[in-house]
Design a protein around this nucleic acid. Structure first.
Lengths: 229, 229
DNA sequence: TTGCTTTTCAAACATTTGTATGAAACTATC
DNA sequence: GATAGTTTCATACAAATGTTTGAAAAGCAA
């Protein structure tokens, strides 16, 4: 058997098992059993368990990033070098949401793996995520071009909130479904993307009116602290 | 030594260690060493490691929930039985954000523990979180009273997005700080709460204009799928 | 004190886990 | 077809970890 066959069998089995049962419940022995390879093969081909997980996550992350930048590029070309802020935000959150939500996506191992990675956050994945910042700078730059009037602070908050809504929707989709008693349609991916984009763009326009958000009613009573429960 | 002393020594030591080093890196032996008690004491007083973690998390969750409902009650009383939608959202996200962000909060063990719990999401905590839904229904009810025109779907999405922004800001504050090169002031807790509240309320007003979000440019080109990278 | 319950303690248990080893099987090149 | 390099395999290793045990200690009521 060529070496690559064992390697990819391990990758596929690991991704499937991690997606189904999470990182905490899957051991190397589970993976090699699923892949029908020897236990030592993991360390031979990947060096360690953590490096296996890292490779899985990096592969999928690169895919998502490529999709995002691709969608951004398409939007910029269509706009003659300048994409609208809506399209930029859509390029940011669209790929992730499309990948992880939707009815048929239940079968997508890659998507379910990335959801797990988002929820459980094991050390090797956390390490990678912390270096993931520079890829977002490209989106910050595009946003800056699209709304030159806005200042950087507002821009970063808008970017942050967009990712907040997208990721949290993926992470907590079960809970939202339960809370809303099915009223929130988690299968309407296009609608969800519209929602997130709309709200994100609105968030960005806060900064265009004033540098400080407008609404700030007096609510902080002196006696309302963490102590008095 | 009275039995309660050992019990609370374990609780305190566990919360401190988990807050500092995370759930993955702290063993029972670390905890009992920090608490100066015997290893078997944990199982004697709590039954198991998971039940210890669960007790820690439940205690802090109850605290947060009480703060939220308290703040909601204050706002409703001030408004003569009806709180404004701004104040409701503020009561929802305020306690968590105040508890977990801010400069002096660095020393608060409870806050850092809850951040860890939000990031790492170990099984006993996940189990509890999944039952945490009914507490949010009280907020949904208050929101319904505040904006009777809005339909339930929009309401739940607004609630969900508010929590998204609050939790994600806590979870990813380091990354946001790095991405924005310090431009986003994570110590200005009041400002952050204002931001989240403002955006949440705006998100809720989407539904008052129309039942579907307005912005929906044609971006989904046929060739833009998960494959073509 | 006596007797009973609760709590502490040191030690051991039982598993699980990732990793390492060294020989065997396989592959490809000469 | 011999040889060198690669890959597979069964097995063992070593360490960590949550849990259990049974006796000692402490607390407390009669």
């Amino acid at each position: 058997m060529p070496s690559d066959q064992t390697r990819s069998a391990i990758l596929a089995a690991a991704e499937r098992l991690y997606a189904d049962r999470g990182f905490g419940d899957v051991t190397l022995r589970d993976i090699v059993a699923e892949a029908n390879v020897n236990l030592a093969a993991v360390n031979y081909h990947f060096g360690s368990k953590d490096e296996l997980i890292a490779e899985l996550f990096v592969t999928r992350s690169i895919q998502t990033n490529r999709e995002r930048l691709n969608e951004l590029k398409v939007a910029e070309e269509r706009g003659g070098g300048r994409a609208s802020i809506e399209d930029i935000m859509r390029a940011l959150v669209g790929p992730t949401l499309r990948g992880c939500l939707g009815p048929d996506r239940e079968g997508s191992t890659a998507a379910r793996f990335m959801i797990r990675a988002s929820i459980e956050s094991v050390p090797p994945i956390r390490r990678i995520k912390n270096r993931e910042v520079d890829h977002l700078r490209k989106f910050a730059a595009a946003m800056r071009r699209a709304m030159p009037a806005s200042n950087d602070t507002e821009l970063y908050w808008g970017l942050h909130f967009a990712l907040s809504m997208a990721h949290h929707t993926i992470r907590e989709k079960e809970r939202l479904l339960k809370l809303s008693e099915g009223k929130c349609d988690l299968d309407d991916v296009a609608g969800i993307i519209d929602r997130v984009v709309t709200v994100s763009v609105m968030a960005l326009t806060i900064g265009e009116v004033a540098s400080k958000p407008p609404v700030r009613p007096a609510v902080m009573h002196g006696r309302l602290t963490r102590q008095d429960l």
